[in-house]
Nucleic acid binder design. Structure first.
Lengths: 340, 340
DNA sequence: CCGTATTATGAAAGCGCTTTCAGAAGCGTT
DNA sequence: AACGCTTCTGAAAGCGCTTTCATAATACGG
């Protein structure tokens, strides 16, 4: 062991061993300028002999680039993230970026986020739903830092790329189905989180369908779902306790649909015979529920892919699609009353 | 706009504006030495006025540290990763690290991995199951780079911390249950991927249970499951086609259990009346299957937490628990024949 | 063979931060 | 009033890489 072999090799060590300058080493490292063949070999030999691994920090500093994509969210739970992450990761990998993930959203101020995922610590940032408030988003945007929003449109008048899924038309179609095919009239809607944009559009689709069929909207039939199983169950329990009649439930998402089914089962109401239930998202387990859930498939992995793709494009070219709206597809199974 | 306001502020700009040296700015930034009160204020004012965000790359270079934890896997798919990731992320957040994720495992050589997640680009690395071959693991270990293995024990004689779950005793217990309570004798086992250590121990538990009950092991009853739904279905289909009798199936994991149930349903065999089915992992949807799956709960999120915790400990103190073996718990539902 | 166009290589500056080492104040003692 | 201490602050040297600029080496046409 040579005296310095305990310390990891640097470009200098390689240069010395190959009897060239560090500039040359750098050049063979990055193929950034022609180097004569024999020298290339010498340098490569030296590199592998010394087990040289270039320090990213040094390179980043010199180039003021990080080669990293940031992903900001609030939590990783739920079946929702696995596919999204998977899509993001795939694109990051293909395009040569690394993925830095943080759930610091809304736990930390945008200054703190800046320290970790912000300018100069990442080349761009994907922000999921409302992990960051408007001022935080503006904060980045003002600085010209590349960001793309996922499942959330930008604050008014800010030109920030956004990728999300079609919610309204799909919801509308789902409710139309309930009304036209299954003749349901008293349809409960369990809305998602207030701040969530998806919630808004799904509810709008619901309202439009009812209106189109001249069914008056009963405010008592619209309750909290919060995209949460327990909340949904509670709401349904209360509806039942209050003696409010209904023959269908449009849960804001599949997760709450599970809660709905729980509540219904617990009070001996048959799904779909007594009450039809539909969800949204088509998360993995929806097909396995009893009965299998009629829902809308959101191409979550594709959302991830697109988000990463747009971000990379934004970083590299300065431009990206303002809005990527991915199509959704109604998935008819049995919980609506069909034979799926 | 001052001429340089287009360029992000550096520590020099802050220093100039606060009329101090950059050393002082650095000191108020890191509270690394006392600075008189009025100066602190001046500096902080300058920082916020200039919207100064320290460059991590520069800091990393100076400190030769990265403040990042790497996570290496092969893919992010499957219900398995969400909880694990969630646990890892939680601990990373608590301990002040960032999470760098890569699915480059086995797609890239360890040299290439080195470039991204290796020494100096990350402070330590978590390696999931067999995302990296033995030589890759040795590669890091030799260099004294902190790594912890998840769901995989280290190559012989290498002292590398590992966190995984108890497989054998739980499998044994599960099979015991099938035999003792439900009087099954011809129990199929669908083993997981060869390379996967979990597969090995689960099979061992199976074998030990049979032996203990003096049931001869019929090699025809042991087939490929690969922790994969389709593979499992195919194997069961073939067994049935070959006319081999069996009254229970121990799928290597829940994922393959789904395939088993599919295959059984398709041939009008009742679960559990004709064939009992049990799995392993207790992934989220297992409770929703028809019938609900009897399985073993693996504390996956805790695995993530522990892995991150051990890694941080290893980085900070140079030592970590050689083996963290998390307990598993048998979850009796209905697919085994109980009334769950 | 010589002057010029073309390459391949090296020296050195710089990326933005931390930290060591000295020096400048400020303080209480004698 | 001079001394030694203790605090606080600044100058400057790195951290390891990229890149510009200049130079040495080679090739070429005449």
């Amino acid at each position: 062991m040579s005296p310095r072999s305990r310390q990891a090799a640097t470009i200098h060590d390689v240069a010395k061993r190959a009897r060239v300058s560090i500039s040359t080493v750098s050049r063979v490292l990055n193929r950034t300028a022609p180097v004569s063949e024999d020298i290339v070999e010498r340098v490569q030999a030296a590199m592998s002999k010394l087990r040289f691994v270039p320090r990213t920090a040094a390179r980043n500093l010199a180039l003021s680039t990080t080669n990293m994509l940031g992903l900001l969210l609030t939590d990783i739970y739920g079946d929702f993230f696995a596919p999204m992450l998977s899509g993001i990761d795939a694109v990051a990998f293909e395009t040569g970026y690394h993925l830095l993930i943080s759930t610091a959203g809304r736990k930390k101020s945008s200054d703190e986020i800046d320290q970790s995922l912000g300018a100069h610590n990442t080349d761009g940032l994907m922000i999921f739903a409302d992990s960051l408030d408007e001022s935080g988003i503006a904060h980045f945007h003002e600085r010209g830092f590349p960001i793309v929003l996922i499942h959330q449109s930008p604050p008014k008048s800010l030109q920030i790329p956004c990728v999300t899924v079609e919610n309204k038309a799909a919801s509308r179609k789902l409710i139309d189905h309930l009304i036209e095919v299954h003749h349901r009239k008293r349809i409960v809607h369990l809305r998602g989180p207030q701040a969530q944009e998806d919630s808004y559009w799904r509810e709008t689709g619901y309202r439009e369908s009812l209106e189109a069929h001249a069914i008056p909207i009963d405010p008592r039939l619209i309750g909290r779902g919060e995209f949460d199983r327990v909340t949904a169950k509670t709401t349904i329990d209360q509806l039942i306790a209050a003696g409010i009649e209904f023959d269908a439930v449009f849960a804001g998402d599949d997760e709450s649909a599970i809660g709905v089914i729980d509540a219904l089962n617990a009070t001996n109401r048959r799904v779909p015979a007594d009450v039809a239930v539909v969800g949204f998202d088509d998360q993995r387990l929806s097909a396995f529920l009893t009965p299998p859930l009629t829902t809308v498939r959101a191409p979550t992995e594709e959302v991830g892919r697109q988000a990463a793709q747009q971000l990379v494009k934004l970083i590299r070219t300065g431009h990206a699609e303002p809005l990527t709206l991915l199509p959704t597809e109604m998935i008819i199974r049995r919980s609506c009353g069909c034979n799926g």
